[in-house]
């Protein structure tokens, strides 16, 4: 049985780290550390003490130059104190050694802007897709229905068919650099979650069910081997039924839908 050691990155505008850590604890992670990104950059904490790296939602650098852009510049260019390595080098190394990465909302924006997703051909530093301003041009907090791609290699979504989670973003519209990229995402089943209308099975482009105008209704994608996963909706915001907007009127299981994603990740690491 493998140990599950989770690190949740915090600081510099990230703001969902506490509920992310809570989700990991509930999911049974053996160790959960909330670590400020500057501690990684200063070399105080070694990423290799962990096997599950979590980028929580928030506003890295206030999203001041576009979501997660300044955050990506920092990870890409800043050298870790006392070393010639950059943080991105460590993260790529972490991926290659079998670690899991989850990015939610601003964390997902960061993953695509770094190039960790979609990570075609093991190239984790080339940006192929992006998340830009919602079609309506505004931030919105609303719950959305998602369908999972059963053929996806994503290790986080095993056993999940449909899921209901909140989105809370202004820049969540998924856009690709070319049709080739889109085709590849589809063919390699790297599309994990798509927005659907109610209980339907086809993705939707209709607002507000697709809240941001994402192409093919894409809400989340993974790397080809399914170990890096990013999504705009917030699984850590639905851990208990009282988080559900209609728990007052619907009979719901004690555990929220979002927890399943974290449990899958923990199980995967435990058994690998």
């Amino acid at each position: 049985m493998g140990k599950v050691n989770s690190i949740v990155i915090a600081g510099n505008g990230i703001n969902c780290e506490m509920e992310m850590a809570h989700a990991l604890r509930l999911a049974g992670s053996d160790r959960v550390d909330v670590v400020n990104i500057f501690s990684l950059l200063d070399g105080d904490i070694d990423l290799f003490n962990y096997n599950f790296l979590n980028f929580a939602g928030g506003f890295l650098d206030g999203d001041n130059m576009g979501s997660a852009r300044a955050g990506a510049v920092r990870i890409k260019f800043a050298k870790i104190k006392g070393s010639e390595e950059r943080l991105i080098d460590r993260i790529v190394d972490f991926v290659e050694k079998g670690g899991l990465i989850l990015g939610v909302c601003n964390g997902f924006q960061l993953l695509v802007k770094l190039g960790l997703l979609p990570g075609f051909d093991g190239n984790y530093t080339e940006q192929k897709v992006t998340l830009t301003f919602n079609k309506l041009g505004r931030f919105e907090d609303r719950w959305v229905n998602l369908k999972a791609n059963k053929s996806s290699p994503c290790i986080f979504t095993k056993g999940i068919d449909k899921i209901y989670l909140p989105v809370r973003h202004g820049e969540g519209r998924f856009v690709v650099d070319s049709d080739v990229t889109l085709k590849r995402l589809v063919e390699d089943n790297q599309i994990v979650f798509q927005y659907v209308k109610g209980n339907e099975n086809e993705y939707t482009m209709e607002y507000p069910y697709n809240p941001n105008g994402s192409i093919l209704g894409i809400a989340g994608i993974c790397s080809k081997d399914g170990r890096i996963f990013g999504l705009m909706p917030h699984p850590e915001a639905f851990l208990h039924y009282t988080n559900h907007p209609r728990w007052f009127r619907e009979k719901l299981p004690e555990e929220g839908d979002g927890l399943k994603l974290f449990k899958n990740a923990v199980d995967y690491l435990r058994n690998s």
Binding site: D141, R168, H234, E236, A237, N243
Partner: peptide, 13 residues
């Protein structure tokens, strides 16, 4: 209301 995040921190009831 929609343009304000009313759920961050995970304790929304």
């Amino acid at each position: 209301v929609r343009q304000y995040d009313h759920e961050v921190q995970g304790g929304s009831v």
